[in-house]
């Protein structure tokens, strides 16, 4: 009887194995989804490449995202703005023709949000840009991306780490972001 526990465990082994395999499957499935289908680099209506614009052509971020310095939201350039250059530049490319068709019909382009914060977070670009925080700190190396993906986990931990490190005044007051 002294080995009875071991014996019992042996009897229970098949069931335990099934449970173990199912659990492993759960974890694997979760990570497969999270890694290969992250949903953080959605397909956009126009294949706009930050690599070409911000990387190769060295256009400053705030040339297009003009609002970032003075508003809570960075602002997505209007079709009007895009056409400011693309009336001249690369007009033959199919993607630019697509853009031009939006311009002609005065339809807005339904861009999909990549960096989306929950509604209870009130982030302001203005203060961060004015404090000379690099866009890449939160948005990742966008200038290298053909398709923008969410690289940095823009979660509360990231915000707080930075606020603590930089000793932001009352930067850990909850009401700074949640109100």
């Amino acid at each position: 009887m002294s080995v009875s526990i071991v014996h019992t465990l042996r009897v229970l082994r098949p069931a335990a194995m099934i449970a173990l395999v199912a659990l492993t499957g759960l974890v694997v499935g979760f990570y497969v989804n999270a890694t290969f289908f992250p949903g953080t680099s959605p397909e956009q209506p126009i294949n706009f490449s930050h690599r070409i614009h911000a990387g190769e052509n060295q256009i400053p971020c705030m040339y297009c995202h003009v609002q970032a310095r003075r508003s809570i939201s960075a602002g997505v350039p209007s079709v009007n703005k895009c056409m400011g250059c693309h009336a001249e530049v690369a007009t033959d490319s199919p993607q630019i023709r697509l853009l031009a068709s939006y311009f002609e019909t005065k339809e807005p382009i339904p861009w999909i949000k990549v960096h989306d914060l929950p509604d209870f977070v009130h982030f302001t670009h203005k203060r961060h840009v004015q404090a000379d925080i690099e866009c890449q700190t939160c948005h990742g190396p966008v200038e290298t991306m053909d398709v923008v993906s969410r690289e940095a986990p823009v979660k509360m931990g990231l915000c707080l780490d930075c606020h603590r490190k930089n000793e932001v005044e009352h930067g850990t007051d909850c009401w700074t972001c949640h109100k």
């Binding site: 929950p118 209870f120 009352h170 007051d173 909850c174 009401w175 949640h178």
Partner: peptide, 11 residues
């Protein structure tokens, strides 16, 4: 909070 206010954090 630092403004002498009684904060309520919904989330």
């Amino acid at each position: 909070n630092q403004d002498g206010l009684n904060a309520q954090i919904y989330n």
